[in-house]
Structure formats: C-alpha cells, structure tokens
Design a protein around this nucleic acid. Sequence first.
DNA 1: CGCTCGATATTCT
DNA 2: GAATATCGAGCGA
Length: 204
Amino acid sequence: MKSQLQGDFYSRPTADVAKALVGMRLVRTISKNGVARQLSGIIVETEAYGGIDDLASHARMGPTNRNLVMFGKPGRAYVYFTYGAHHCVNVTAKAPGREAGAVLLRALEPLDGIDLMISNRSQDNLRALASGPGKLTQALGIGATLNGADVTDSRSELRIEYGKVPDKVIATPRIGITRATEIKWRFIDAASNFVSQPSRIKIR
DNA sequence: CGCTCGATATTCT
DNA sequence: GAATATCGAGCGA
C-alpha cells in the first residue's frame, strides 16, 4: 500500500507546499518493451513560484501557452525547457482562490533505479546524479511529454508519495533568478548531502 | 579549489 | 535583440 499524496496536499499556499515536499518521494515509471522500471528519489530541495504578484515566476505575465498548467489544477506536473538544453519539473500548488503557483523540484537523493540514472546522466557520482533541476530531469528521463501529468494518480508515470518529514528544513533565496531575490522561497533539507551546488549565484 | 564562458531553444521586450 | 527557474568544460592558481 503506497501512500500517494492527495490533491488537497497541493491546495495550500505555494510556499507551504514547497516546504512540505522536502522529504517526499518522487517516483518515475518507465515502460519499455513491456518491462516497467521504476526510478525514484527523496526530494531534498524545492522552490516556490507564485502568480501575477511574483516577479520571478513564469506566471507573472498571466496565462500563456508555456505556463498554462500553473493556472490549472494543483498536483500536476509543469515541465518546461530552458537554456536551449534543459528541462525543469515543477508541481502545481496554490491556495484556493489564487490564480497560479508551482513548486520547482531542484534536487533528489537517488533511491531506486540508480543504474538507469547513471546511464541517463553518463555520470556515476551519486551526489551529482540529481543535484540540480536540469540534472534531476535528465536522471529520471522527464521531458515535455509529462507536462500536465497528474502526480496524485498512482497510475501516473510521474507521481509523488509520502516519504518522511526531515528534522530541519531551511529557507533561503531562490537560485538563478534576477528578480525578487529577497524572498526566501527555496527550501532544503539541512541534513542532506544531495542539494544543488550552484556554480554561480546571479546578482543584480 | 575557484571563476569564466559557450551552448542552444523558447520566451520576452 | 536580450534574457533565461542550467550545466559542464576549460583555465589559472
């Protein structure tokens, strides 16, 4: 009996959900040639992105073709492509009545299917497998086809199960943004060795 | 170690 | 045209 997080988990203020997702388990199922493989990891780093009022969010311009999922139901995957090379995966989350919101999944502690992650990444250092938003999606084989996937559905190819609540979760400013840099909406498991190690922090 | 820089598609101004 | 919720190679110390 797996404990899927239900839809109401995501129907809360986006930053609350971002914090609560640290310690939970992201599960990716890949079927090829009729054989199902499972890749999973514990979420150790997240960031919250809000609606119109969050100048760092993709949703700040209102609904567009790219960010449309952020304006829809909570508990769905929002996958986008950036820097001409990387996918990033979010889970939509917002309090009832808010127009948009999503939580960027930035890093995992690898758990299941580590052999496949190593293959996907061409990299065998456990700490470098999924310690960053672009690395995470590459390790789990997450692409645009998963945009809009329901992560609360146990039959989904991408879903989130209950893990455990970490002893301590720290809030810091978000990484890689140039606006609203004072808001501490990045959440990390203080005890984890698998958080991202950004090569450079943007300032403006 | 640290810092600089190029890649490369999509979105924004 | 410029910017981007990134990554990793290349360089100097």
